[in-house]
Design a protein around this nucleic acid. Structure first.
Lengths: 214, 214
DNA sequence: GTCTATATTGAGATAGAC
DNA sequence: GTCTATCTCAATATAGAC
């Protein structure tokens, strides 16, 4: 048993190859449909290597999401995101999130597949937590923008959803149609459109404002 | 084959029960993992009933999406969506789309599962077409709004994505967290926020506007 | 032990009575 | 339109020869 509980600098190549191979196979054949044998063969290693770095197939799966999620939060929390106007900080936050998403498309795709797909015996990972983490980060900046008067005094939740909606659609376009990706510049344009508004003048509905169509 | 191409008012109960049961099972066990036997048992009918109304298991699957998609387009094209300001028309269009989505959550969920999930031998259905249909409808109204001066002269695509982003996020919240649904009113608030803008004044970035972070 | 041939199972699909 | 009863076919499991 060479491996203590401290993880003494495990070989990154083998570990990475296993994670990459697992992501690819889970995407192509599903979690249940992927065997440990297939993973190790695709990674060019042997079974014991997998069981050394991870405890099981479930361990590979959980490591995949846990480590990526941790890296995602670290990316968002990087210094420099606390300076500037609320608009700039939201743009920066979304830019980081978008870049991360683009750099990890296969895992994002897997997340969607697991989240929406039928149960496959895959271990539970709290995807909600990662969504809520991003949302609360954006909501916090939006709240400050509203309190400082930079943003209009609308509900924080509404403003947050407007921003998350733009970020989310940019990510999904990249995921589903990479060839027509909006790119970082496109996301920035989109967010600025949301900040500045589409309308030339703030002219709400002519008719009743309470209730939607009868 | 009594059933002509005109669909002479087929019995809605059995047919509907089959479609509902299939949607539920496909969602829970996947397309490949669901057998015809399970579908007919869940629907309380026998195999031949399924093969009478549909030609095969694939036929059930395709009917599910084809008919729902057709109904969706019909919902969006309903009279009344051509009147009023561009803002009102976009709100109306999105409201219809949202209501339809909420009324067909299981099928929307299945669409996501099929779209992002691993191949399961399910027949090809062009999900892109339905997305593009909605997008082009919205883009058309947005374009008219821009041309009439009601909207700012930004790129039609950008404005379209801003609107679709808001609609999309409202749909996904309803899909993933129905308990915190924005509801029709929430979607309207969200869209109006996008129309009017979050910022109190159109003050873009202080620094360079070309390029995102270096 | 391995290999081939045969069962067994469960899938999708159908014929013909009612 | 719906049912009972049956068919075809593929994958898998197993038996028994070698």
């Amino acid at each position: 048993m060479k491996q203590s509980l401290k993880k003494p600098v495990p070989d990154p190549t083998v570990r990475e190859r296993l994670l990459t191979a697992a992501t690819d196979l889970f995407n192509r054949k599903g979690y249940a449909g992927t065997s440990v044998r297939e993973i190790v063969e695709a990674a060019g290693v042997t079974k014991p290597a997998l069981y050394y770095h991870f405890e099981s197939k479930e361990g590979v799966y959980l490591a995949l999401f846990q480590e990526t999620f941790a890296a995602f939060l670290a990316t968002l929390a990087v210094p420099g995101s606390g300076a500037g106007s609320a608009r700039e900080r939201v743009l920066d936050l979304c830019d980081r999130a978008f870049q991360f998403s683009v750099a990890h498309l296969p895992l994002v795709r897997l997340m969607y597949a697991i989240y929406y797909g039928p149960p496959q015996g895959a271990p539970n990972f709290n995807f909600e937590a990662s969504h809520e983490a991003v949302q609360s980060l954006i909501a916090a900046v939006v709240r400050e923008g509203i309190e400082s008067g930079e943003f209009k005094p609308i509900a924080v939740e509404d403003a947050m959803w407007a921003v998350v909606g733009a970020l989310n659609i940019a990510m999904e376009v990249d995921l589903c149609h990479p060839e027509q990706s909006l790119g970082r510049e496109g996301l920035a344009r989109l967010l600025n459109a949301v900040f500045d508004g589409l309308a030339t003048s703030a002219t709400p509905l002519k008719k009743a404002r309470k209730g939607v169509r009868p």
